[in-house]
């Protein structure tokens, strides 16, 4: 057997490597790279196909059962018109009032649910005693649909604002707590052992193992939690409310103006998407180690 050795470094005439760009340069680099991939084009194409199908059903062909539903052209022209035929557009102050009220409620509910749910979940996951005390009650209350809480919420809290916030908080509280608890339980025993022989006290284990270890689950929980917060907020606003996107949707329906109804729905979609994106962004910022671990797995 003969071995032919190749000197792989012989023909190595790599030009000097470019420096890693920073700030704006990096953003530009990413944007260029993105535009060279098929992703943005496929996304645009996908949206166009769906919009066209929607237009065809409602406006192009006006199929039965669809003729009463406002099509994309009607909605868009009203949405960006200074004098909307059905009363709601980006030029009417009411529109922003609805968005603002809903966002404020979500913010309060989300902060409350996180401030209560994360610590409770951490304790439930970490201490068997705390779990024994709380879990049965928690699991009994959790499956109760938010709509079932509505009458009680109206009886318990005065005004429009507090019952709505209570309902949104409740829904996201359950999601956050449960995920946080599962997060702590998912932490590998070996990290606790390592911390043990390195001489950690209980408090150190909590701050250096339990909290960071549960972090990926906590943020998954927060993503779900902000989603269900929107879901229950709109439900609550439909029953009890004076402003808000849920109220806009229902009151438009009652007043037989279908365009603001759909505008309200689409706005909810955008605002909801935006809010989860913020949660995701914060999560990735806080968990660089997790982002890098996923990147190593090619995700």
């Amino acid at each position: 057997m003969s071995v032919i050795a190749h000197d792989v470094y012989a023909g190595d005439r790599t030009p000097a490597r470019r420096q890693q760009p920073t700030g704006f340069g990096m953003a530009l680099h990413r944007a260029k790279k993105g535009l060279r991939s098929p992703t943005p084009y496929l996304m645009v194409f996908g949206i166009a196909v769906w919009l066209f199908a929607y237009w065809l059903l409602c406006e192009g062909l006006s199929l039965p059962r669809f003729e009463k539903i406002p099509g994309p052209v009607t909605i868009l022209s009203d949405w960006i018109s200074a004098n909307p035929q059905q009363g709601t557009s980006i030029y009417t102050p009411d529109y922003y009032q609805h968005i603002y009220v809903s966002c404020r409620r979500i913010l309060i509910a989300f902060v409350l649910a996180t401030a209560l749910g994360v610590p409770l979940g951490l304790l439930m996951g970490w201490s068997a005693k705390v779990k024994d005390y709380t879990f049965p009650l928690f699991e009994t209350l959790r499956p109760i649909p938010i709509m079932a809480w509505v009458p009680l919420a109206i009886l318990m809290f005065a005004g429009y604002e507090t019952p709505v916030i209570f309902l949104a908080t409740l829904a996201s509280f359950f999601a956050t707590t449960l995920n946080t608890m599962l997060g702590v339980q998912s932490i590998d025993e070996s990290y606790f052992r390592a911390a043990g022989c390195l001489g950690s006290r209980k408090r150190d284990v909590f701050w250096h193992v339990v909290v960071p270890g549960a972090m990926p689950f906590i943020f998954t929980g927060l993503q779900i939690s902000i989603g269900v917060a929107w879901f229950s907020l709109v439900a609550a606003e439909m029953v009890s409310g004076d402003f808000g996107l849920g109220y806009l949707i229902l009151s438009s329906y009652v007043n037989s103006v279908t365009v603001p109804m759909v505008i309200g729905m689409l706005t909810l979609g955008f605002v909801g998407w935006f809010s989860s994106a913020i949660v995701r962004f914060v999560g990735n910022r806080l968990m660089q180690w997790h982002v890098k671990a996923l990147a190593m797995q090619g995700r």
Binding site: D188, S190, Y191, R193, C197, L198, G199, W289, H290, A293
Partner: peptide, 20 residues
């Protein structure tokens, strides 16, 4: 009990993944 006078190097890595 566990203490720093007996250090264990584990089968699978037990480095805290959230620390450098």
């Amino acid at each position: 009990g566990p203490a720093k006078d007996r250090m264990v190097v584990f089968q699978e890595t037990a480095l805290m993944p959230w620390q450098t």
